[in-house]
Design a protein around this nucleic acid. Structure first.
Lengths: 227, 227
DNA sequence: CGTGGGTTTGATGGAGCTCAAGGCACGTGG
DNA sequence: CCACGTGCCTTGAGCTCCATCAAACCCACG
């Protein structure tokens, strides 16, 4: 399916928003939209045909797998986000849909050409890349900061912030985009530990679980300092 | 001190190498060289005056500190590397010299102007940024991959590769740029654990320690698979 | 109703953190 | 030159936290 930028929900915030109307139209001609259902994979590590994409709606994960097949989640992509190796010959990691998602995809060659043609687009991607870098390092800092309690509570808080529209305040009631197993593999802990921390948080009156994915946060500050 | 690009050891590989001779001269006029001794800090998190720099020689660390003052190392910068937030209003992390280092520094405003003027420079930085992102994720994957033995041995191997001139093969004999404590804070383990793993590696005949920082590697493959 | 995926909860053992002591290299001042 | 202090590293002993193993639960779905 070809692109329909006029009705795109992220037309004013994605990287391509720096382009003029005509420039955008031209870029759009080389792209395609694609929809994914949960679990479907967008790029696989080592793929021949390389491409890149911006996420319009939904959520993605970037994941690596060790020799035993254990997944390690390296990053989450939210709407407006951009994925794809622009310079490496092939993608280094798998990119998989966490929820039903909608994105627009470009062949690497087309995107490379567009970068040469539109410096503003390159700057926009540089900015995004630096943000991704920042997020990766935040996750790294979270990583072995301290105990499992800290890690899980802070991740819940981070997910709440990501789920919120307003940039600063966390959503107080939202659905986790991740299963317990996925939370576990973002932090390098086990499913059981994640589950235990969540019940502890609930017993402490800090959160409430609604079904399996729903979370209601009563005390955001307590999530920061849970030991 | 102003720049002397003619004699710069990384003139053909740093980001600025994409510029023509005259363009480089012009950029050079807005930059300054700076030398740091081990431990000196280049940028501090939250600094007012923001800047960026490419590393000419030596090594840097990017580090964050938790509320108790524990350091967490987020990345290492090697010669050719570029540091500095181009878009954020202030740096998010400390940047500190690991060894005596030499770099050339640019005010953020000057660099921003240069980016607008030289699209090729922007592309070069985008490429570098993606590489940094890749490295951060590699460290993330290393993180809670598995036991402390794995982590430390793989990090030693990675440091050996970084110390080597040839891109692929690790240096067989080199000096660690990091103290035990710094290795520990890259991995989120304790100093004692690092020390114990190193002695275990030595007892297994895989490495030999020469003084405190020197390392000789006998069996690089064994470092990959040490349990 | 049975099946299966994801989740919760409990019991146990071990890897690594904590605490503590000692060693080595280096600089500083008597 | 030696005594002393200071960093950094090493080694040991105990204890804690989390991974592991195992079982049961919940819920959606056929």
């Amino acid at each position: 399916m070809s692109l329909a930028c006029q009705t795109c929900p992220v037309r004013d915030s994605a990287a391509c928003s720096v382009l003029s109307e005509e420039e955008r139209e031209e870029l759009a001609r080389s792209g395609r939209t694609r929809t994914l259902t949960r679990g479907e994979i967008l790029f696989a590590a080592g793929d021949e045909e390389t491409a890149c994409a911006t996420l319009v709606s939904g959520a993605l994960k970037i994941a690596a797998y060790d020799e035993d097949g254990n997944e390690r989640i390296l990053a989450l992509i939210h709407p407006n986000g951009f994925v794809g190796e622009m310079f490496a010959p092939f993608p280094a990691h798998d990119v998989v849909a966490l929820t039903d998602s909608q994105l627009c995809v470009f062949a690497k060659a087309d995107m490379t050409r567009a970068l040469e043609k539109h410096p503003a687009l390159t700057r926009a991607l540089l900015r995004r890349s630096q943000e991704d870098l920042h997020l990766a390092r935040k996750l790294l800092a979270l990583g072995s900061g301290f105990g499992a309690n800290e890690q899980v509570s802070k991740l819940v808080l981070a997910l709440a912030q990501a789920a919120s529209d307003s940039p600063c305040h966390p959503a107080l009631k939202f659905d986790l985009p991740l299963t317990r197993g996925e939370i576990a593999s973002m932090l390098g802990v086990t499913i059981e530990t994640v589950s235990r921390v969540l019940t502890a948080l609930e017993r402490a009156g800090i959160i409430k679980r609604e079904g399996v994915r729903g979370i209601e946060i009563f005390d955001p500050d307590a999530l920061e300092n849970f030991s």
